[in-house]
Nucleic acid binder design. Structure first.
Lengths: 223, 223
DNA sequence: CTGTGATTCATACGTTCGTTTGAATTATGG
DNA sequence: CCATAATTCAAACGAACGTATGAATCACAG
């Protein structure tokens, strides 16, 4: 019987796939690695999900459904409390990016592993994955974009859109590279243990994002 | 004779590989695609470069050597002019990130194709590529880190390091996703044609980065 | 206990992968 | 012009890939 709850096999496959896609990318992870790590038969993926493409979509759907609902809920709550007044940019930024980062502490929802996978996948070159994520993200991003427009009425909309773009990049990178960048730079973050780093990432990131979002507008040189 | 200058075949392979790695990633690009697009025999890659891994390293080396030298030169020049005075953060940011973005306009140096490849590869999961880029970047990043420390003596070093990290992410993402993000969001940048977008990306990005770099320090909640 | 559908399993299929080989061709210095 | 090195070429290698198959096993309603 196709159980509505996750069968043990399905969950084991999704967990293994999530970790391996995070570590080695989509093309760099084979079905044999996934089923090997999950401790299930090779044919189980095609039986339960249909194909490798359908598998990674389910890996994302399982987590993104919750994240995007939570983001919508957070914005609903803020707007209800604000009672018609425009929100503060920091509230919007925290509702969008803070909600995401706080997933890292929630092992039940994929924790840091899913977050790194998400961060890396946003720049993944594979066409169908980006198209899939585009669809999953569209309505939420649209909603937050509008909220920022209302929150910053003096800033041109195009500028806000770009800065949302930059914020997404900084966040993805910060998540994806929490230890990848140790490699790249070997800079002096060693002093803080990894527990501490995750705790402090969020306030550090939010400060940076707000600073960038509220920065003086650029002067374009004529041409 | 192994010509020191690039033979036609070598250059054609490097150009094709650069474009294809950008479009489909390392694992997603096959030797047959590369040699097909380059119009050379399949065996030519292994003859001229030795392996697929050695090929992508050469793809990066060809461009990064110039970029990193240029970054060093820009900082040398700034420090010579400043005559012992600490540099302004905006000068340092422009020397590092501006030099990179301006590569996009220089078709001779790979233009926007290489830049997107670079942006995407910084979050690439493949271990040996990240390790290679780490080595290529190490001394330059070290040098800029020190310059920022001197430029912002009141900001804790750990904070500067993190913010450098965030700036790198925003920049990589802005480059890599110049049209990938159109997909994700379909937000209203359509008004400006793509020529314009590239011209205006740099001042927009720099404003954002400086804003983030100079943002008020985060307050850590006790725990 | 039995029968039926869901699941797991070993195995194999056809492709495509990166790499290698040895002969054919081209370029070059004496 | 010839000898020798450099390069290109068609062809093939074994390995790994995603997927499909049909039998074996399991779960459970009647």
């Amino acid at each position: 019987m196709q159980d509505n709850r996750l069968s043990d096999t399905r969950a084991r496959i999704l967990d293994a796939a999530e970790r391996l896609f995070m570590a080695h990318g989509y093309d760099g992870t084979s079905m044999r690695q996934i089923t090997g790590e999950a401790g299930v038969n090779l044919a189980a993926v095609n039986y339960h999900f249909g194909s490798k493409e359908a598998l990674i979509q389910e890996v994302f759907r399982r987590r993104l459904n919750w994240l995007n609902e939570e983001r919508m809920r957070a914005l609903d709550e803020l707007e209800a409390t604000a009672d018609g007044q425009p929100l503060k940019p920091s509230q919007i930024v925290d509702a969008f990016f803070g909600t995401m980062i706080r997933m890292a502490e929630d092992e039940e929802r994929g924790g840091v592993i899913f977050l790194r996978l998400l961060g890396r996948t946003l720049t993944e070159p594979s066409d169908f994955i980006r198209a899939f994520l585009a669809h999953e993200y569209k309505t939420v991003v649209e909603r937050y974009k509008e909220a920022l427009f209302r929150s910053l009425p003096d800033v041109p909309k195009a500028e806000i859109v770009w800065r949302f773009h930059f914020m997404l990049g900084a966040t993805s990178y910060a998540i994806a590279g929490t230890d990848a960048l140790r490699l790249v730079t070997d800079w002096g973050i060693e002093a803080e243990d990894s527990e501490d780093r995750l705790d402090r990432l969020l306030p550090r990131l939010i400060s940076f994002l707000i600073g960038g979002l509220r920065a003086p507008l650029p002067q374009f040189t004529d041409h």
